[in-house]
C-alpha cells in the first residue's frame, strides 16, 4: 500500500543523504520526495511517498526514527489528511490544439503560466490521481516536458507535526 511519510528533521548538511541513503541501503522504495526548510530555519520538512506491506512500513518508520537527524515523523496515510502535488507541463499548442489544451486546462482548474505561439506551460495542483488524469487527457503526443514536485501533505484538523 502507498504511504505518505512526513519527517521533521534537523536542517543540517548530510541529513538528507542519511534519509535517502537509508532507503537504498535497506532496499526500501521511494516513489517521490520533497524537502524544504520550515518556519523554524533549524528544521526541514521532508515528505516522501513509499509503497510496502505493513511490516515494511513499520521497519521504514522505525529505521527513520533511529536517524539522529530525524526529530519526529508521521505516517499521514494512517489518518485523514490533505495531499497536494504541483505539476508544470509544457504542451504543444498549435492550430485546433490551442483551444483544446486551454479547455482541458480549465476543466481541470489549472492555469496557463507561460505562452508562446507554439506552446503553453500549464500549472496544475492536486493529488496524484488528478495530475495523472490531466496527463492522460492531454495525450502523450502533445506533451513536451513534465515536472512534478512530489507529494506534500498535512494532517486534517488540530493534529500538527512540530517540536
Amino acid at each position: 500500500m502507498r504511504h505518505i511519510i512526513s519527517i521533521l528533521m534537523e536542517n543540517e548538511a548530510g541529513a538528507l543523504s542519511r534519509v535517502v541513503g537509508l532507503f537504498s541501503q535497506r532496499n526500501f522504495n521511494i516513489e517521490s520526495l520533497n524537502v524544504a526548510p520550515t518556519e523554524d530555519p533549524t528544521l526541514s520538512r521532508l515528505t516522501l511517498t513509499t509503497i510496502g506491506s505493513d511490516q515494511v512500513i513499520e521497519q521504514i518508520t522505525k529505521q527513520l526514527n533511529k536517524l539522529v537527524d530525524v526529530v519526529k515523523l508521521v505516517d499521514l496515510t494512517e489518518g485523514v489528511h490533505v495531499e497536494r502535488e504541483l505539476m508544470l507541463v509544457k504542451v504543444k499548442a498549435v492550430g485546433a490544439q490551442r483551444a483544446e489544451v486551454k479547455r482541458t486546462t480549465d476543466i481541470f482548474r489549472g492555469q496557463i503560466v507561460d505562452v508562446t505561439n507554439t506552446m503553453y506551460t500549464v500549472q496544475m495542483v492536486g493529488d496524484n490521481e488528478k495530475l495523472d488524469a490531466f496527463i492522460q487527457a492531454l495525450g502523450v503526443n502533445g506533451i513536451l516536458e513534465v515536472v512534478r514536485t512530489g507529494v506534500s501533505g498535512i494532517s486534517r484538523g488540530e493534529k500538527v507535526l512540530s517540536l
Partner: peptide, 14 residues
C-alpha cells in the same frame, strides 16, 4: 569520509 562511512555509522559529524 562522511559519505563513504554513512551506511556503517550510528552518526557522523563534520
Amino acid at each position: 569520509m562522511i559519505g563513504v562511512s554513512r551506511p556503517v555509522v550510528k552518526h557522523s559529524f563534520s
